[in-house]
Design a protein around this nucleic acid. Sequence first.
DNA 1: GTTGTTCTTGCGAGACATTGCAATAACAAG
DNA 2: CTTGTTATTGCAATGTCTCGCAAGAACAAC
Lengths: 157, 157
Amino acid sequence: MTGPTGSEPRSPAVQVAWADAREALRERGLRWTPQRRLILEVLAETSGHITGAELVERCRARDGATIGSTVYRTLDVLEELGYVRHSHGSDGREEYHVLPLAEHAHVRCLGCGAAWDLSWEDARELAERLEARNGFKVALGHVMIGGYCPGCEPAAP
Amino acid sequence: MTGPTGSEPRSPAVQVAWADAREALRERGLRWTPQRRLILEVLAETSGHITGAELVERCRARDGATIGSTVYRTLDVLEELGYVRHSHGSDGREEYHVLPLAEHAHVRCLGCGAAWDLSWEDARELAERLEARNGFKVALGHVMIGGYCPGCEPAAP
DNA sequence: GTTGTTCTTGCGAGACATTGCAATAACAAG
DNA sequence: CTTGTTATTGCAATGTCTCGCAAGAACAAC
């Protein structure tokens, strides 16, 4: 694991990665709209994970006219472009992982809800094993490991 | 992996495991109702995985008066008793794993949607590693590994 | 600037799941 | 069998996310 993720502002070095989003869209014949600009802005200030509903709410805070379905559809587009990656939290809600510089697996505590990224070594080992034994190609962005961190205990059985 | 799971009828040997459900409920001061009886019946004929919505539908096929929320609440109770275990499929829908004789992790192909159980050795290795390195106790029932099986390829990037 | 193509948006409907609350029914006790 | 306790149910409202479709906007070409 590489440490818990939160929602602190991104470093300037990382922010630039969003700068070419408009370019990336245009290259694919997609369009740059005020709605997408707003969503990108909010995402650029987000680090770690964010749920779909949270993103809708933060966008709505800046522009009361924000429409939920537009946000979700934009998220789909951004995922295709590689800017976000989504999975599902333990409650089944969409959870978007922002700017996956390297795709990685998620580890989540079922007790306190904290989330980490699986360390690269652990991930690689898991992936190599499954591929070698079964020819199964692991998609690290789609791996969720639930459990309990030190301090959090499973509910009594 | 131990092979794909489906929805064939259970063997008689496994069916008996459901017989004491009524007993298990009563021991906890919970009640045996016609609704729960129906849900148990349907589950007893199910093997592998089933989504919440599917279960509701199958119950409704036998009793048109079946109420969704009752089914979901019963599922919660059964999960506490250990008769089912739930996780979330790649589309975020609830997915109940029936009668988890041994808790195990899920492997799912993002291409064809097929699901397997992670082999016990692979699972144990993953669990031991995370526990040793980070003190993180893996809950195998809450592990989802996405990827692509031989024959299914990731969508072009 | 005008025009045309087509990607996007807004909006409403719908699927799935959760929750609060009042009415009901299961169970134990007498 | 009757009664009292309280777990459960049914229902309605809410929340999250998806989808179809017509109107609107972005972009390129002229």
